[in-house]
Design a protein around this nucleic acid. Structure first.
Length: 610
RNA sequence: GCCGAUGUGGCUCAGUGGUAGAGCACUCGAUUCGUAAUCGAGCGGUCGCGGGUUCAAAUCCCGCCAUCGGCUCCA
C-alpha cells in the first residue's frame, strides 16, 4: 500500500527566505523581552536566527528550566497581541554606548565594540524594549503568529563560544510563516528521530553499550560485526587493487613514541591516562598509553628498513582501533565514541609524487561514497589557525601542505569551503562532512598532507641520485571511522541496508513445519556461495513470520510451501528502494531457487538491488 | 568538562509516600496455518548506584554513575 501524503508543505530555510529572517529576528527579540519581563535579572547577549529557528543567550543568575519555557511562551503571546511596532533607529556609537550604560547591559557593550560600521542600528519593540541588531525585522509584533512559534529547549552556552568565559542560558525556539509549517517542521523532526541510529541500532541488534564496559565504548553484536566486516572487506579489496599494503600494529605504545610524534605535547588531553608499572615510572613518564592515532606505528614500519625511491609511494593500511578520551558530554551513539576503528592508511611519497597520489586518494574516497550511496556531503579544506599554538612544524611546511590540498581540489573542480583552525596538529586536511538525522555535522572521510611527522621521525629514502631525501606523508581514511560511518549509514538508509550490506540478506519462511527441511537445504545452498541466509524456526504463522522479517528489515524473504517444494522455487517478497528512496515491500512472485541465487550473487557483486 | 532534562523486567511504557503493573519478547501447552500480530498458561524487576528523611520511599532530599538535548572539543 502506498501512503498518499495529503499536501506537500514546503519548509523554507532561513538563509533562503528574508520573510523568515524577519520572523525569526523579531521572534527572538520578543522572546528576549518576555524573558526579561519574567526574569528581570536576566541580561541579554546575542540572539540570531538559525536554519530552523532562532535562539537567544541570556546571562541569568537562575538557570531556566523547561518548565519556564511555557511561561515565556505565554508572555510572548501577550507581547504579540499588544501589536508593538518594530522601529528601526540609527544612532551614533557614542549614543549607543550611553544608552547601553543607562540600562546596565555589559554584554551589549562588548557587542557594540565589535561592530565596525556606523551608524549603529537599534530595533525597538514599541517603547518597551530594544536591542542592537542589524535586522531585518517585521514591522510589528502583530505580524507574528503565536501558533507558528514554539520554544524548544534550554541549553548552556558559553559567551563568545569560549569555555573560559561565562556560561549563559540559551533558549532555542522555532518560528514559521504559518501554524501548518510549524506542524510540518515538528512532524519532520519526529520522523528524523525514527531514523536515529541509536534507536535503529538497538532495534536491529547491531551494537550495544554496557555501563560496566564504559561510556563511548560500543560492543558489536554478531549482526553488527557482519556489517563491519562487509564494509572492511569491501574497502580492503579496493585498496589491494590500488597497491595498498596491509599492516597490523598494537593498541598501546610507550609514551616516548608519542613524544616523538608530538601527540604527548599537542594531543595529551585527548588521550587516556598513562599506564605505568610504578609511581616512579609514572613520574618519569615511562609508561604506556593507548594509541589515539595509528600514524606513529606505521612510521615505525616505514623506518624499519632503508627505503629506496623505487618503493614509493608506499601505502601502509590498517583497520586500526584507536582510543581517545573524549569529554563525557561529547559522547553519543556511534558518532562520537572513545574507542573506534579508523580505516587508516599512511602513504609515504616523494615530493614529486604528492599531487598525483593525493588525487588518487580523493578518487578512491569518492568512489567509496558512491558504492555506499552517500551523496550528501560537503568538502572542507581544514587549514591551521595561524594565531594558535596547537600545531607543530614550520610555516613553510604548512604552506606547502595547504598548497597541495588547494591544488588538488582546484584540479578536480570540487565545491568546497575552508575551515580555518580545523587542521590536525601535524597538518592540513581535506575533510568530507556529512549530516546525521538531526542535522548535526560529522566528518567522515579525510585526506591529510603532512611534512611534519617525516621531519620529526627523520624519515628518509634513497633518491635516484643516491642522496637521502625526506618523503612526504599522506594520512587518509575514506570511512573516517567504522563506528561513525555505520552511524551515518544507518540513518541514511533508515536501517534498510542495501542487500550487499544487510547483516542478514535472506530469511526463508515456511508455511508449515513440514517445509522446514526444504528451506534448510536452500539456505545451505545460499550460504555455500557466501549469501547470508537463515530459516525462521519459530513455528509461527506466516503472517507473523512476515511481520517479524519486515520489522527486522530483511531485504529478501522467501516463502516456502507445498508449491515451492514441488517446483524447487521460492515465493519472494523483497524490500525494495523506489525512486524516491523509500523502502517498499513488494511481492516479487515465484522464482526458481537458481534464479534467486543468481540475483543475490549479482546484488552482492554490483552492490545493486535484488 | 559545563548548563538543563531523564533513568521502573530483554524492549516500549504505566505507577508521585502505603511496600510494583501492562503489552511485546522469552518458556511451555494447544493450534498446522499461504504474504505485517492464533489462543492459553508460565517465567522474569535489590524500580541506575550509594546515603539520608519517614512508622513506611520507585515516589521526597543529597552525592555519584549513565543516557538525552545543547555549549566547548573531534573520526
Amino acid at each position: 500500500m502506498v501512503a498518499q501524503s495529503p499536501k506537500k508543505i514546503h519548509l523554507p530555510k532561513t538563509s533562503e527566505s528574508e520573510s523568515l529572517q524577519k520572523i525569526r529576528h523579531t521572534a527572538s527579540h520578543v522572546m528576549a523581552m518576555a524573558v526579561q519581563k519574567l526574569f528581570p535579572k536576566a541580561q541579554v547577549t546575542i540572539g540570531p536566527w538559525i536554519e530552523n529557528g532562532f535562539y537567544y543567550d541570556f546571562d541569568s543568575p537562575e538557570p531556566f528550566t523547561e518548565k519556564d519555557l511555557k511561561a515565556i511562551k505565554k508572555e510572548m503571546a501577550k507581547i504579540i497581541r499588544r501589536q508593538l511596532p518594530v522601529i528601526r533607529e540609527q544612532v551614533s556609537r557614542e549614543e549607543a554606548e550611553q544608552r547601553i550604560k543607562a540600562i546596565a547591559e555589559p554584554y551589549k557593550l562588548e557587542i557594540l565594540n565589535d561592530i565596525k560600521e556606523e551608524p549603529i542600528t537599534i530595533y525597538h519593540l514599541g517603547d518597551q524594549w530594544w536591542d542592537l541588531c542589524a535586522g531585518p525585522h517585521l514591522e510589528s509584533t502583530s505580524q507574528l503568529n503565536p501558533d507558528a512559534i514554539a520554544l524548544e529547549s534550554v541549553a548552556g552556552a558559553y559567551w563568545r563560544g569560549d569555555e573560559t568565559k561565562a556560561q549563559l542560558q540559551r533558549i532555542y525556539g522555532t518560528a514559521w510563516e504559518s501554524p501548518e509549517q510549524l506542524v510540518e517542521y515538528q512532524r519532520r523532526k519526529e520522523e528524523a528521530l525514527r531514523r536515529d541510529h541509536r534507536k535503529i541500532g538497538k532495534e536491529l541488534g547491531l551494537f550495544i553499550f554496557s555501563d560496566l564496559v564504559g561510556p563511548g565504548l560500543p560492543l558489536w553484536t554478531p549482526k553488527g560485526t557482519v556489517l563491519r566486516s562487509t564494509l572492511e572487506s569491501f574497502l580492503q579489496k579496493e585498496q589491494l587493487k590500488r597497491g595498498y599494503l596491509p599492516v597490523v600494529t598494537p593498541h598501546i605504545a610507550r609514551v616516548d613514541l608519542f613524544k616523538m610524534s608530538g601527540h604527548w605535547q599537542k594531543y595529551h588531553e585527548d588521550m587516556f591516562p598513562m599506564m605505568a608499572e610504578s609511581q616512579d615510572a609514572k613520574e618519569h613518564e615511562q609508561g604506556f598509553v593507548m594509541k589515539p592515532m595509528n600514524c606513529p606505528f606505521h612510521i615505525q614500519i616505514y623506518k624499519s628498513e632503508l627505503r629506496s625511491y623505487r618503493e614509493l609511494p608506499m601505502r601502509l593500511a590498517e583497520f586500526g582501533t584507536v582510543y581517545r578520551y573524549e569529554q563525557s558530554g561529547e559522547l553519543g551513539g556511534l558518532t562520537r565514541v572513545r574507542g573506534f576503528t579508523v580505516d587508516d592508511s599512511h602513504l609515504f611519497v616523494t615530493p614529486e609524487q604528492l599531487d598525483d597520489e593525493f588525487l588518487k586518494v580523493v578518487d578512491l574516497i569518492l568512489s567509496v561514497f558512491e558504492s555506499l550511496r552517500l551523496k550528501n556531503f560537503k568538502a572542507r579544506l581544514s587549514f591551521r589557525d595561524p594565531d594558535s599554538d596547537k600545531y607543530i612544524g614550520s610555516d613553510d611546511a604548512w604552506e606547502k601542505a595547504q598548497g597541495a590540498i588547494r591544488r588538488a581540489v582546484e584540479t578536480l573542480g570540487m565545491n568546497y569551503f575552508e575551515g580555518i583552525g580545523e587542521a590536525a596538529f601535524y597538518g592540513p586536511k581535506l575533510d568530507f562532512i556529512f549530516q546525521d538525522a538531526l542535522d548535526r555535522e560529522w566528518q567522515l572521510g579525510t585526506v591529510q598532507v603532512d611534512y611534519n611527522l617525516p621531519e620529526r621521525f627523520d624519515l628518509e629514502y634513497v633518491a635516484d641520485d643516491g642522496t637521502r631525501k625526506r618523503p612526504v606523508m599522506i594520512h587518509r581514511a575514506p570511512f573516517g571511522s567504522l563506528e561513525r560511518l555505520i552511524g551515518i549509514l544507518i540513518e541514511e538508509y533508515a536501517g534498510d541496508f542495501p542487500v550487499w550490506l544487510a547483516p542478514l540478506q535472506v530469511r526463508l519462511l515456511a508455511v508449515g513445519d513440514e517445509f522446514l527441511p526444504f528451506a534448510k537445504q536452500v539456505v545451505e545452498q545460499m550460504q555455500a556461495i557466501g549469501i547470508r541466509a537463515e530459516v525462521d524456526l519459530s513455528g509461527d504463522r506466516l503472517g507473523k513470520l512476515i511481520r517479524n522479517a519486515e520489522k527486522d528489515k530483511i531485504p529478501v524473504m522467501g516463502v516456502v510451501g507445498a508449491k515451492e517444494v514441488e517446483s524447487n522455487s521460492l515465493s519472494i517478497r523483497a524490500r525494495i528502494r523506489n525512486e524516491a528512496g523509500n523502502i517498499q515491500s513488494q511481492d516479487v512472485g515465484s522464482l526458481s531457487v537458481a534464479e534467486v541465487l543468481e540475483r543475490l550473487k549479482q546484488a552482492n557483486e554490483t552492490h545493486g538491488n535484488f
